[in-house]
Design a protein around this nucleic acid. Structure first.
Lengths: 121, 121
DNA sequence: CATATACTGAACCATTGAGTTCAGTATATA
DNA sequence: TATATACTGAACTCAATGGTTCAGTATATG
């Protein structure tokens, strides 16, 4: 289950780690679009766009539906909850860490000696 | 400047798109560690860990300092502000999108006819 | 029916990524 | 001084990415 979430975080962050794909998400945020629309917008071949869309689909960030010859892409069901959660958790660790460092610095300032080499936490 | 940020988002999201690297960040959130420490923790060669650390360093998420033979790794200066920001913006777009969809569904429910095929927004 | 449109799949290419091994260098320690 | 420790760099393997072209298939349109 943890590795399940890890796999998902891997997939999502890696889907987000590409300018074009983030662009597609933003675009779809303003309205659904066909593969051809996206190809025009991002000046890329249909095949190229298709690949990006597949990646986004597999990460659950986009859904598509084909009607006639046209495949329409829309935002998917996931709203990046886990990703936002992970980042938030990280930010809290980060704060805690640097608060601790601040305290340490204060403490060191108090003792002018600064004799021993502290194990850097 | 926009592409500057895009490059950074690329680098950071891609740094986060790996279970081991997220693990390292979490580990460092609880205290600094040497390359050897991390290698033990994640059962990987020194060289392997080193590469991950370099990636994290380049994304600004980790800083390192070598004293004697030991390179100590700590959390870096960046606290994922831009990434949190991007995700937040996306979530808002997402909400807006699905609110609009909800409205559309309501509207369709009101007209029992459901005659014409609406352009899916 | 003929033609144009929209997409799909296979194959290819160049680059990057994750990981290894192995041979070093530099620093501690006995 | 000899030896062990901690890291580093180069080189290699193997798989995945990002992108293309080209040859299809399926659907609209005149």
């Amino acid at each position: 289950m943890v590795q399940y979430m890890n796999a998902r975080l891997d997939a999502t962050f890696s889907a987000l780690a590409d300018t074009t794909r983030r662009g597609i998400l933003e675009q779809l945020g303003h309205g659904s679009a066909s593969v051809t629309d996206l190809a025009a917008k991002f000046r890329m071949t249909l095949t190229g766009i298709k690949k990006h869309v597949v990646v986004l689909e597999q990460a659950g960030l986009v859904t598509t539906e084909k009607v006639g010859r046209v495949r329409t892409c829309s935002l998917g069901l996931r709203r990046l909850e886990e990703e936002a959660g992970w980042i938030e958790r990280y930010r809290q660790l980060w704060e805690a860490r640097f608060d601790a460092l601040d305290k340490l610095v204060e403490e060191l300032k108090c003792r002018e000696k600064a004799d021993g080499r502290k194990k850097r936490t």
